[in-house]
């Protein structure tokens, strides 16, 4: 046997033999197979391989016993969503108001990189709405921009207005949003100096 699509020395293709063994399909060409040494050798090898596959399938693979408990613990610490929340287009690129420069400027030796304020707002918005307890950016619901970006070279001050879920403490939520937005802006946009202001502009019940 050789490469996939291989042809045996007798001129028959290996592929139907593989299906014959793997799926237990009836022999396509019983008369030839009964006679042909090459086909029989290939079948013996394939049967051996599939018996190992079967052995592997029967192997008792068990997760450690506290795996479900660990997942349940994580679930208890994360509020449940009423329904899955796909990112809307406006969350990907929220309405943004810029102050100062309209691009972040990253100087390099071979040329400069400029990143539009709207891109920074999109990165920040996506990071913010991924935090459990953040229901939306306020700009999703109104014409007013939810995100203000103030730029000076590699420094950015970003203000996010958001709608929180009613219930959990808001200062902790703001801290989590700040940390996530900061991490994403540093990692994705390469900014050196990031200030994140969080404005909790609305709260709403999960229902």
């Amino acid at each position: 046997m050789s490469a996939p699509g291989a042809v045996l020395a007798c001129g028959r293709s290996l592929a139907p033999l593989v299906e014959q063994v793997a799926e237990g399909q009836p022999t396509v060409d019983p008369e030839h197979q009964a006679e042909c040494r090459h086909c029989r050798e290939a079948l013996v090898e394939l049967e051996a391989i599939w018996s190992e596959v079967g052995e592997l399938a029967r192997e008792d693979v068990r997760a450690r016993s506290d795996l479900v408990a660990a997942a349940m613990h994580r679930i208890r610490t994360v509020p449940r969503e009423r329904e899955p929340r796909p990112l809307s287009a406006s969350q990907v690129r929220p309405p943004v108001a810029t102050h100062g420069a309209r691009h972040a400027l990253l100087e390099g030796s071979g040329g400069s990189t400029r990143i539009a304020a709207g891109v920074l707002a999109a990165i920040a918005g996506a990071a913010a709405v991924a935090i459990p307890g953040v229901r939306a950016l306020v700009g999703d619901r109104s014409a007013e921009p939810a995100t203000h970006v103030e730029l000076d070279g590699m420094s950015v001050a970003i203000t996010l207005e958001l709608e929180a879920q009613l219930g959990p403490p808001l200062p902790a939520l703001a801290t989590a949003v700040r940390a996530a937005v900061l991490a994403e802006l540093v990692a994705q946009a390469g900014l050196a100096d990031v200030i994140v202001h969080v404005v909790v502009a609305n709260v709403a019940d999960a229902r």
């Binding site: 450690r64 479900v68 997942a71 994580r74 679930i75 449940r80 969503e81």
Partner: peptide, 19 residues
Amino acid sequence: DAEEAVQDAFVAAWRALPG
């Protein structure tokens, strides 16, 4: 890796259960 993936999957499943 498998343990972590399964935990992630259970958390994701639980959160998406209403859907």
